[in-house]
Design a protein around this nucleic acid. Structure first.
Lengths: 189, 189
DNA sequence: ATTAAGCTGAGACATTTGTCACAAAATCAG
DNA sequence: CTGATTTTGTGACAAATGTCTCAGCTTAAT
């Protein structure tokens, strides 16, 4: 839980007392490799703070898998649309490595938010973090070519390139693995 | 202001009293066609509720313009990243038609949020709306080809196709206008 | 109404990407 | 360790896209 507390304190002032209030909404949960955190068709009722390992959200369309997001240590994995609206998620979230998470229970979180403004505030800040991240990645796709997207990720999020396989990275960049291979080859010569 | 009140009420329960609290943070402001709501390099300190007309955010890269988002009536235009963090915006927002907006002043909004939980709650809901919209459009880019993206917009956001020019639509879809032309031609035959 | 500016459609060509196929290398499970 | 599975690299070909150009059309401003 220590990592989570540090993470929260890096976002907003959070006292020992606030932490005690928040705790009842939290549960530690581990996932094996390839175990699902969220299945398509389910309603997302949790936020998963990633303590160790990483996971991805993906969409299955005509049998082949397209990665939509990656979540690493010190990030919150969820499907905002489903979490916020209570509608079924169109995406899956799956552990890519053995995963240790701290689960925020939605119902408890909502109840606590009503009583403790600090917790409500924390929720808003997390949401904002999420929106900022989305805006960033949306811009990458709108503004850049596949080659430029790779360069952007290498520069600004090098840990992604280091940890995920070429196939998964390609899917994340929105190209086939062959194209990603070519981009890297062109650069050498 | 009536449109805005209806909009807010459609999002969350909002009393006449809440509305009176909120009003001091609001200003009506009009923009001429091609007038900037937000300039690159400025810090975004406003939320613009679009009452009539539409605007777009764009990014200028090596002299040519790439549209990143479109904002129509009953939407909130802003740059979340800059608004939330206080950092300079990398994007411009410009009126594409004569525009009538209701401006939310950031500082006043923050003050009011501290005193009135309903207003804080409204802020969070708007933020969530924003995140949901972003997630949707990010998915379009990650999952679909240009042709499929066009079809998605035609199906789910037909007003966009009806109101913006082909050139702007192409930029929004992340392709050149020639490509968009070809996609439409292919479909006829 | 007139002029200027911007928008659209189309063709030619180069480049990029997707698809399919196969072999080599790396990884995983027993 | 070993066999099976997955991942990666490569080539050939087709399809899609970008770039450049020009001409006709629409729109905007005066």
């Amino acid at each position: 839980m220590n990592n989570l507390l540090s993470y929260i304190c890096s976002l907003t002032p959070f006292s020992e007392e606030d932490w005690e209030y928040l705790k009842p909404a939290l549960t530690k949960r581990t996932f094996a490799r390839n175990e699902l955190l969220l299945r398509e068709g389910e309603v997302c009722s949790s936020l998963f703070y990633i303590d160790a390992g990483y996971c991805k959200s993906y969409y299955e369309i005509d049998g082949n898998i397209k990665n939509t997001e990656l979540f690493f240590e010190n990030e919150i994995a969820t499907n905002v649309t489903s979490f916020g609206s209570g509608l079924e998620s169109k995406y899956n979230i799956i552990a890519c490595e053995p995963l240790i998470t701290i689960v925020f229970n939605k119902d408890k979180l909502f109840e606590l938010s009503k009583q403790h403004p600090k917790i409500e505030n924390l929720g808003r800040i997390c949401l904002r973090q999420f929106a900022v991240k989305q805006e960033e990645f949306l811009a990458i796709f709108k503004l850049y070519s596949p080659k430029e997207r790779l360069e952007y990720i290498e520069t600004h999020h090098p840990h992604i390139v280091q940890r995920v396989s070429l196939t998964q990275l390609a899917s994340f960049l929105g190209v086939t693995r062959e194209t990603l291979s070519r981009i890297r080859n062109r650069r050498i010569s």
